[in-house]
């Protein structure tokens, strides 16, 4: 049984201008101790999917309208608020993109670190503080015993993200959701944070969901990758498989935009010309049709569902055409040489 099993998740935002289809029939799972990467361009619904899992969608205007989120045998969408709070920051943690704005500027690191420890682990002040210092040392913050009294703005960006990670790990979660934790950091710091999470994941036996814009970043990190587009998962495959033989035109575009996979180059995800569809006016048929070089008539009328590629049970694609990505990448490389 997977650790997290999401089925047909749907989240909408009811705004004055219209209904935003932010998450559309999303199904995926995460196994115990697995690292799953989620990629997709800005606005594709990566954050909203994971915030829906945590039941942290701002409500109103947001609402989870459908679906099932099974975690350790219970459906999180059916839990009472106190029950979901007992899981948040405890069994499932989430860390966010910008550690400057995601940490409270007027509370010390100690206060912010110990509050979840005290709530979930029921430790007293002294014990919680000891645990917090231990956590800070664990994520590589020097002189943790002194630094714990500091405020977030007294740390550098990379150190702040380490504090954020320490907060995420405070109660030994089974699942850590990292929403673009390195996007706000420069490249060298970025690599350090990736290494840190890899190390911690091994030590703590947890599963990780890592959201990013940057497909190349996942190369050393993820076991499996989900590609999101317009609030849908359009392709899901093990890392090697996805890099070697992508079967969705959008994934193919993403991969072609990365010059060399072995170099951790930061690639802006603008793989295909054109804009994603307006989520307030969701198109009929395949949402990628307007930008797709492989489009056929059927794409305009019928929305493809995520289906396994015939010979690969772990590889699923939502596309009527499923172009042979391996061959396309081969040709592209040949031309480049």
């Amino acid at each position: 049984m997977p650790l997290l099993d999401v089925k047909h998740l749907q989240t909408r935002f009811y705004t004055g201008e219209g209904v935003v289809h932010a998450v559309n029939d999303v199904s995926f799972h995460v196994n115990d101790q697995e690292t799953v990467g989620i990629v997709g361009e800005s606005g594709s619904g990566k954050s909203m999917t994971m915030l829906s899992v945590m039941r942290l969608i701002p409500q109103p205007p947001g609402k989870i309208t459908q679906g099932e989120v099974m975690f350790e045998g219970q459906d999180l969408l059916q839990l009472s608020l106190p029950a979901i709070r007992r899981l948040r920051g405890n069994r499932i943690s989430m860390i966010f993109q910008d550690p400057m704005t995601s940490l409270n500027p007027v509370l010390t690191v100690e206060k912010q670190l110990t509050e979840s420890i005290r709530v979930h682990m029921k430790l007293d002040k002294v014990a919680a503080r000891d645990r917090a210092i231990e956590l800070l040392e664990h994520v590589g913050i020097p002189a943790a015993r002194d630094r714990i009294r500091n405020y977030p703005h007294q740390f550098s960006g990379g150190m702040r993200q380490r504090v954020m990670i320490a907060m995420g790990l405070a109660c030994d979660p089974k699942l850590l959701i990292a929403d673009e934790p390195t996007t706000a950091l420069d490249v060298t710091i970025q690599a350090q944070i990736v290494e840190l999470v890899k190390r911690l994941k091994e030590e703590l036996n947890m599963a990780v969901i890592w959201i990013t814009h940057d497909l190349s970043l996942l190369a050393s990190l993820a076991d499996r990758i989900l590609v999101m587009y317009a609030g849908q998962i359009v392709e899901s495959a093990p890392l090697d498989q996805l890099y070697a033989n992508p079967r969705h035109p959008y994934t193919l575009g993403l991969l072609q935009s990365i010059p060399r996979l072995d170099e951790a180059q930061k690639a802006e995800l603008k793989p295909v010309d054109g804009m994603p569809p307006d989520l307030m006016d969701y198109p009929q048929g395949c949402p990628f049709a307007a930008r797709c070089p492989y489009v056929i008539d059927r794409c305009h009328t019928e929305d493809p569902t995520l289906e396994p590629v015939s010979d690969r049970p772990n590889h699923a694609v939502a596309c009527w055409v499923k172009p042979n990505g391996a061959a396309v990448l081969e040709t592209a490389r040949a031309i480049a040489h």
Binding site: L56, R88, F96, T101
Partner: peptide, 14 residues
């Protein structure tokens, strides 16, 4: 509307 409010909720605080 600040991000740290979301962080606080993500910790499971009441």
């Amino acid at each position: 509307s600040q991000d740290y409010m979301r962080t606080a909720r993500a910790k499971g605080l009441a």
